[in-house]
């Protein structure tokens, strides 16, 4: 995995998730951050910090990114969401526009 193909997503607690750019760009919000020409700090360092999203939720979000890519390529599996996570995950998904 080359560094320029990846992006680092950092949770509220400081945990870092390194994911493919393709996967992260499932989120419209992240896509805008990484591709906007305005020179976001995020674009330069390939790092995005989410002070509002906890580690558990961010991990779930990353899993969803990859599930979404697989789903789009025709692999139809179920994405299981634990009921306990629904509210937080819903809000994060709403913010990330994914």
């Amino acid at each position: 995995m080359k560094k320029e193909d990846t992006v680092k997503l950092i949770s509220a607690e400081g945990f870092e998730f390194v994911v493919h750019k393709d996967a992260a760009m499932v989120s419209q919000t992240i896509r805008n951050m990484l591709t906007s020409p305005g020179g976001f700090a995020e674009t330069e360092h390939g790092e995005v910090t989410f002070p509002e999203i906890s580690t558990t939720i961010l991990e779930k979000i990353c899993k969803y990114f990859y599930w979404n890519l697989q789903f789009a390529s025709g692999k139809q599996t179920e994405f299981h969401i634990e009921p306990e996570l629904t509210l937080e995950l819903m809000m994060a998904a709403n913010y990330l526009h994914t």
Binding site: Q28, N68, L87
Partner: peptide
Amino acid sequence: TQLVDLCLKAA
């Protein structure tokens, strides 16, 4: 969005 919808379903 799709993930929000999945969350609503699961909830």
